[in-house]
C-alpha cells in the first residue's frame, strides 16, 4: 500500500503555544483512518493545514504524490482532497441541489453556462437519492435540520469524486439514526474506493468504523495502530484520563 497523505514534522504555533508540534503521520489509500485526541490536541488545526486553510510554520504535507505547500483549498479540492467542517457549512440560501451542483467542480466554460443544467440536476438527484434527501431537493438548504445539513455537506464534497475526504466530527450533535446513516455512507463510499481521515469524539463509532487510529496529544501523535491496540495503550489512557 502507498500513502495517499503524508504529514511530516508539521508545526503551527499560536502565540507561544504549539497547537501542532512536529506532527508526522500518514494515511494509506483505501483506509478509514481516525484522528482522535483530547480537546485542544490539534486535530482541527492539523486538518486546516492539510487542506490549505492555514499555513504551517514548518513541516511538509504530501498528497497523492505532490506537495501541498502553498496550495490553496480550491486547488487541493480539484486534486481530490476535500473536507467537511465541524459545524456543517452549507449554503443556506441555495437549494439542496444547488449545494451539490456548485461543489461538483466545473470547467471555465461551464462557469458561463446554465446555473443548473439537466446533467447537473440528474447527477445531484442521484446523490440525494443515495443520501435519502430527495424530498428536500428543492428546499433552501437553510430549511434543513442540523443532521440533514451534515449529510448534505458530506454529499456535496463527494460530488467531485474525491480521493481523500477529511471529515471533521461528522456525527457531533446528530441524532442516533443519523449517526447510523452517516456510518453507512462512509462505509459505502470507502468500499467504492474513497479514503477517509476522520476526526471524531464518538469512540464507539471510531472503534467500529476506523482502522487504523492515530492518537494526537498536545499537537503530536502518541499512538498509532488498530483500534483494539489503541484501546489498551497506556499513553492513550493517560492522555484522555490525565496522569
Amino acid at each position: 500500500m502507498t500513502a495517499l497523505l503524508e504529514v511530516e514534522g508539521l508545526t503551527k504555533r499560536f502565540g507561544g503555544v504549539a497547537a501542532v508540534d512536529d506532527c508526522s503521520f500518514s494515511v494509506e489509500a483505501g483506509t478509514i483512518t481516525a484522528l482522535i485526541g483530547p480537546n485542544g490536541s490539534g486535530k482541527t488545526t492539523a486538518f486546516n493545514m492539510i487542506t490549505g486553510y492555514l499555513k504551517q510554520d514548518s513541516g511538509t504535507v504530501r498528497f497523492d504524490g505532490g506537495a501541498v505547500e502553498r496550495a490553496r483549498p480550491a486547488q487541493l479540492y480539484r486534486r481530490g482532497l476535500s473536507r467537511t467542517f465541524q459545524q456543517a457549512r452549507i449554503f443556506p440560501e441555495l437549494t439542496a441541489i444547488e449545494n451539490l451542483v456548485v461543489a461538483a467542480g466545473f470547467s471555465w466554460r461551464d462557469l458561463f453556462g446554465r446555473r443548473v443544467s439537466k446533467r447537473d440536476e440528474e447527477r445531484a438527484r442521484r446523490m440525494l437519492d443515495e443520501f435519502r434527501l430527495s424530498h428536500l431537493a428543492d428546499l433552501p438548504a437553510g430549511d434543513l435540520s442540523y443532521g440533514q445539513r451534515k449529510l448534505l455537506e458530506f454529499a456535496a464534497v463527494l460530488m467531485s469524486s474525491p480521493k481523500l475526504v477529511l471529515l471533521d466530527e461528522p456525527t457531533a450533535g446528530v441524532n442516533p439514526v443519523m449517526i447510523d446513516a452517516m456510518e453507512r455512507h462512509i462505509r459505502e463510499r470507502n468500499a467504492a474506493g474513497v479514503t477517509f481521515l476522520i476526526v471524531e469524539h464518538d469512540m464507539q463509532l471510531v472503534m467500529r468504523l476506523c482502522d487504523p487510529v492515530i492518537v494526537l496529544d498536545q499537537g503530536a501523535p502518541i499512538a498509532f495502530g488498530p483500534p483494539a491496540a489503541i484501546q489498551t495503550d497506556e499513553r492513550v489512557l493517560e492522555a484522555y484520563l490525565g496522569g
Binding site: 487542506t51 486553510y53 480550491a74 480539484r78 467542517f85 449554503f91
Partner: peptide, 22 residues
C-alpha cells in the same frame, strides 16, 4: 441564471467554504 451567479452566491454566503469546494 448561470454558474457565475451560483458561484457568487457561495462567495456571499461563506467565502472560505466556497474555496474549499473548488
Amino acid at each position: 441564471r448561470s454558474k457565475i451567479g451560483l458561484s457568487l452566491a457561495t462567495v456571499r454566503a461563506d467565502e472560505d467554504k466556497a474555496h474549499g469546494i473548488g
